[in-house]
Simulated assay, not measured.
Amino acid sequence: MVKKAITIALCAVLAAACASKAPAPSAGADGGAKEKFVVGYSQSNNAEPYRAQLNLQLQHFLEKYPDIELLPIADARQSSATQVSQVQNFITQKVDALIVSPTEPAPLTAAVQQACDAKIPVIVLDRTVNTDCYTAFIGGDNVLIGKKAGEEAVRLLPDGGKIVELRGITSNQPQIDRDKGFREAIAANPKIEIIADREGKWLKEQATPIMQQWLAQHPQIDLVYAHNDPMALGAYLAAQAAGRADKIKFVGIDGLAIPDGGIRAVQLGQLSATFVYPTGAQEAADTVNKILHGQPVEKQQVLGTTQVTKDNAADLYKQFDLSGQS
Rank of each mutant, 00 (worst) to 15 (best):
I123S: 11
L108F: 03
S101H: 10
L125D: 02
A97S: 07
P105M: 11
A106E: 15
E104N: 09
A115Q: 07
S101F: 09
V100P: 05
F90N: 03
D117R: 00
F90Y: 03
V95W: 14
Q113M: 08
A97Y: 05
Q113D: 14
F90H: 01
L98F: 01
Q93K: 13
P105G: 08
A106C: 11
V122M: 04
K94W: 13
I120H: 10
T103F: 07
P107D: 01
P121I: 09
I99R: 10
K94V: 09
A115N: 06
I120C: 05
D126T: 10
P121G: 14
F90E: 00
A111R: 10
L108A: 04
Q113H: 07
V100A: 02
V122R: 03
L108G: 02
Q93E: 13
C116D: 12
V100M: 03
V95L: 09
A110M: 12
I120S: 04
E104G: 05
K94L: 08
S101Y: 05
C116G: 13
I91G: 03
Q93H: 13
P105Y: 09
A97I: 05
Q113A: 10
A106T: 15
K94P: 08
I123Y: 00
S101C: 09
Q93D: 12
V112D: 01
K94Q: 14
Q93M: 11
I120V: 09
P121S: 02
P102S: 04
L98C: 01
D126M: 11
D126G: 09
D126C: 12
L108H: 02
Q113W: 00
Q113Y: 06
T92R: 12
L125S: 02
I91C: 02
D126Y: 10
Q113T: 15
V95Y: 08
D117W: 00
A110T: 15
L125H: 02
P121Y: 11
V124L: 15
P102V: 04
A97F: 07
T92M: 11
L108K: 01
D126W: 07
V95D: 11
N89E: 07
L125M: 08
T103P: 00
E104H: 12
A97W: 14
A97D: 10
A118P: 10
Q114A: 15
A118K: 09
D126R: 15
I99P: 08
Q88S: 07
P107S: 07
I120A: 08
P107Y: 13
S101K: 08
D96C: 06
D96I: 02
L125T: 01
Q114G: 06
T103E: 04
V100Y: 05
E104V: 08
T109F: 05
D117I: 00
Q114I: 14
A106V: 15
A106M: 15
F90S: 06
K119W: 11
V112Q: 05
I91A: 05
K119V: 08
L98I: 01
Q88L: 10
Q114F: 09
